[in-house]
């Protein structure tokens, strides 16, 4: 059954959403310069949700995504790359996606609550959790430093 706007708003406003435990950045499946993590989101309502984080320190580009397992990304923050909205405006390199029935996750807007830069993933994480209504009962470990030559 398709997600409705009412369900999405209820999910985002559900103040019982929480992540339990520390979060550590891991190497991705391609062993690329990027780092990832995945954390299950628990809630009283039982939404099948998780957060995926992704960092490309070379750019730097940072993303935190709230993913509903039956729908895909429903809410997310992107930093370090621009976005083009369906109405043909460029949004900017710091933007958020918020699911709607009409456009799903294709429309983005400039958030006012993200003050940190993509080079500060832990600070951005705290700001992301605050607006997404996620109580993180643990801490995010800083990403490990990059080592080695890239490709040249």
């Amino acid at each position: 059954m398709a997600l409705t706007q009412t369900e999405f708003e209820a999910m985002l406003n559900d103040a019982t959403k929480c992540i339990v435990g520390d979060i550590a950045w891991q190497m991705d499946e391609d062993h690329s310069p990027c780092l990832d993590f995945r954390a299950e989101v628990l809630s009283g309502s039982g939404w099948p949700l998780f957060v995926r984080g992704s960092l490309n320190p070379l750019i730097p580009a940072l993303s935190y995504m709230l993913i509903l397992k039956t729908e895909g990304r429903v809410y997310g923050l992107d930093m370090g790359k621009d976005h083009h909205n369906p109405q043909c405006q460029q949004v900017g390199e710091c933007h958020k996606h918020r699911w709607t029935e009409q456009l799903r996750d294709k429309e983005a807007y400039v958030p006012v609550d993200i003050a940190a830069s993509p080079a500060q993933p832990v600070d951005v994480w705290l700001q992301f959790c605050a607006e997404a209504g996620i109580d993180h009962r643990g801490r995010m470990l800083p990403p490990p430093p990059q080592t080695g030559e890239l490709f040249l």
Binding site: D28, D30, S32, P33, D36, R52, S54, S63, G72
Partner: peptide
Amino acid sequence: LGETLRWLRTQT
């Protein structure tokens, strides 16, 4: 710089 596969991973 790995952005395409990074983008894919964040969508799935």
